[in-house]
Amino acid sequence: MRIVVAEDLYLLRDGMVRLLEAYGHQVVATSTTGPETLDALRRWRPDVAVVDVRMPPTQTDEGLRAALAARGELPGLPVLILSQYVEQLYARELLADGAGGIGYFLKESVFDADQFIDALERVAAGGTAMDPAVIAKLLGSGTSHRRLGQLTEREHSVLALMAEGLSNQAIGRKLFLSESAISKYTTSMFGKLGITDDDHSNRRVLAVLTYLNTP
């Protein structure tokens, strides 16, 4: 894959590039500021971009803004946001356009390189991948609390894994259940939540997340 890495701290940027190259991916450009990131995304149109939220010159959410702006021009451009902290607010903004190809992770998720690369590939393929911390926050907030009240405990855990971006097969492996059992759970769950079910995992995740996000 052709990847753009936007990260202002040298050590992290360097480590990230080395990690990606170790897995056989090609880093076509790196950037260290918000405007630079936007330029690189426009010029290279990468298969996926790894973007840090906080970047110079303002040291606020420059990276996030650049990613959102680039996706405004190039709809569905796959972006994986890496941050020291996760905010529901930012997750909402990223998911708002409904185009998919979004990942939002804590920086330490790169500790588990296999899973990280896996998530990155899912995002590049137009899927959605969220850090468990983001999911926990989404599922724990007041709005979703009421809506999720009718789900059983098992359905709840299936929903959480689905929101992370896993397919039925992967969820089944994690919960030691058969794929058909999982699909039974999802059907009943979608029925309760009033979401139309289809097999496309990305649209499924988006449906769940947008549903949880709308106040």
């Binding site: 906080r54 606020t60 905010e87 724990g140 907030s141 007041g142 609390h145 009421r146």
Partner: peptide, 25 residues
């Protein structure tokens, strides 16, 4: 709080509302 310095008071309060166990507008 990082959102406060990133976005200012309104968005920071919005983020708080999202994280709150209450249904907050």
């Amino acid at each position: 709080p990082p959102v406060l310095s990133d976005r200012g008071l309104v968005d920071a309060v919005r983020a708080l509302a999202l994280d709150s166990p209450l249904e907050t507008t």
